[in-house]
Amino acid sequence: MALPFRREAEETGRLLALSDGVIAIAITLLVLEIAVPEVPAGTPPSIVAELVFEQSHQFLGYTLSFLVIGLYWTLHRRIFIHIEAHDRRIVWLNLLFLLLVAFVPYATSVFSTYPNRLGVSFIAAVLALTGLSLASLWIYASRRELIEAGLTSRTVGIQATRFLISPIVFAGSIAVASVDPTWAMLTWVLLVPINVVLNSRLVESLEEESSPQD
């Protein structure tokens, strides 16, 4: 019979189930933070469009946080595709990641209420820390050799770079926000082409590993 701690180390199903549940709730809470505007009595219905337009920062915050949480969920899934066993530190690093994910709806609310230097810097800091916790999870697992055998150092490095790029961009946007919050938000768009390039390189590396060697 396998030792209890060994069976526990090989079990990842409950870890993933908890992670998926927390992430799903966090994404749902994002839209619940957006309240339907109330039309004052005696005002024409045409004012509704104006009131909705005034919520543009709420929609921006919702879209940004939804996409980033979705990206982090994809990267989290990629980690546990390759992890074959885990230890207590993996569990606690994963809980740290979930703690920060669950905090994203509040950060989004702050950004939506104060779409200035404060709000931009606050949400960027939370998203940077969330991404950093995910990167730490991957780096720790790869160094402790808890990931599947056969992954080359190139593949592991590309994965680490992809995990780190989001916190780097968000941390950089905090510095930009001190000059111009609008430009800081525009830097977040850099995540799209950078992730596309890194994902392409990752796919190439994985295909090279799976191709038969002469």
Score class of each variant (00 low, 15 high):
M1G: 14
A2I: 05
P4W: 05
P4L: 07
P4E: 07
R7A: 15
R7F: 14
E8H: 13
A9P: 03
A9K: 01
E11S: 08
E11C: 04
G13R: 13
G13K: 13
G13F: 08
R14Y: 08
L18P: 07
L18M: 14
S19E: 01
S19G: 03
V22P: 02
I23Y: 01
A24Q: 00
A24D: 00
I25E: 04
I25D: 08
E33N: 12
I34G: 00
P45C: 04
I47E: 14
I47Q: 13
V48M: 15
V48N: 07
L51C: 11
L51H: 10
V52I: 09
S56E: 10
G61R: 03
L64H: 11
S65H: 13
L67I: 06
I69E: 00
I69P: 00
Y72E: 12
T74S: 10
L75R: 03
L75F: 08
L75T: 02
H76L: 01
R77T: 01
R77K: 00
R77A: 02
E84G: 09
A85L: 12
H86F: 05
H86Y: 10
D87M: 08
R89W: 07
F97D: 08
F97Y: 14
F97L: 12
L98I: 02
L99Q: 05
V104H: 05
Y106A: 04
F111H: 03
S112E: 04
Y114W: 13
Y114E: 11
N116H: 15
R117P: 04
V120C: 06
S121A: 11
I123Y: 10
I123N: 10
A125E: 06
L127G: 01
A128K: 10
L129M: 10
L129T: 02
T130C: 07
T130H: 01
G131Y: 08
S136G: 15
W138G: 12
Y140F: 15
L146F: 09
L151E: 00
R154D: 13
V156F: 04
I158K: 11
R162F: 10
L164C: 14
L164A: 15
P167T: 00
A171T: 12
A171W: 06
A177C: 01
V179K: 12
W183V: 11
W188T: 04
V189M: 15
L191R: 06
V192R: 01
I194P: 01
I194Q: 00
N195D: 04
N195G: 09
S200D: 12
